[in-house]
Amino acid sequence: MGGSEKEPTYRGAYIRPILLIYSSLVLIGTSYAFISEGHPIMRINNCATLTLHAILFFGALFNTERSLGCAERFLRLFICLYIAIFFVLPVMMASMRASGSAPHTPKMLHESLGSYIRKSFEKEPSEAEKRFDEEAKDQLLQVFTDDDTKLKVDSMFLDKVSKETVIKVLDYGEFRILKEHALQNHTISGLFFDNMIHDIRRREAFRAGIWSGYGMEMACILTIILLAVQHHLVKRMWLHSIFNQPLKEQYLYY
């Protein structure tokens, strides 16, 4: 009755402010992480995250077919990259830990969680455990009789993690050979002890690297899901800009 019809609104209009707010928050947080991070690999990851969300932010800000199409292609590329990273993370982390090039990884999620679990179940050692420790220590000191190695063994038994490492020497093949031949050369036995401890720690680091990779894969899966959601939202805006926006501009002339 004389009233003009309301202009139809885009049902996905809420997408644009969500993407703008989300990408701006990620840019701020990642910028701080990029500045404070010292490891080169993590800085490269932060730089890639900054690039992606800068493109996503400007794509949503300009809201044009070209900018949204660029953001959609970059999101698709990053999804493929994270899928590839998902398959190589355990091997990569294990190699880095074993080679000693990733000393920061003890702070990873799985090790923090493991430390928390260990503390939850920590208790005073029983008399049987104390006797086992004393017997293990006696066996080691019967073979490694030089003063330097004795001091190393004593100091390692004071720390729970180091104690677990030094006790594993008893099952080492080279230790059994030294014990059978009763080798009393202090210099050689000390070198054998250092080599065995180094080899055991390298194996433990490799195993920890494997679990670090699996722990990081959980974060990788969540990132892939998040990127897929962003890709879906950007694609909706992109399709809207292709099909609906030109029609709106065309009808402005009538």
Rank of each mutant, 00 (worst) to 15 (best):
E135R: 15
E135L: 13
A136L: 01
K137W: 11
L140Q: 01
L140M: 05
L141W: 05
F144Y: 03
F144G: 01
F144Q: 01
T145F: 09
D146T: 06
D148C: 11
D148G: 12
K150P: 07
K150M: 04
L151D: 10
L151P: 00
K152R: 12
K152M: 08
V153C: 01
V153G: 01
M156L: 12
M156Y: 14
L158G: 14
L158M: 15
D159L: 11
D159T: 12
D159N: 15
K160Q: 10
K163A: 10
K163E: 04
E164Q: 03
T165K: 05
T165Q: 02
T165L: 02
V166N: 02
V166G: 01
I167V: 12
V169K: 09
V169I: 12
V169H: 06
V169L: 04
L170C: 05
Y172A: 10
G173R: 02
G173M: 00
G173C: 04
E174N: 07
E174Q: 11
E174S: 10
F175Y: 04
R176Y: 09
K179H: 01
E180I: 07
E180V: 03
H181G: 01
H181S: 06
H181Y: 00
H181N: 04
A182M: 02
A182D: 03
H186M: 08
H186G: 04
T187C: 08
S189N: 12
G190Q: 11
G190P: 12
L191P: 01
F192T: 08
F193G: 00
N195E: 15
N195I: 05
I197M: 07
I197Y: 03
H198F: 10
H198P: 00
I200Y: 12
R203M: 14
E204M: 14
A205S: 15
A205H: 09
A205E: 13
F206A: 15
F206P: 10
R207K: 15
A208E: 14
A208K: 15
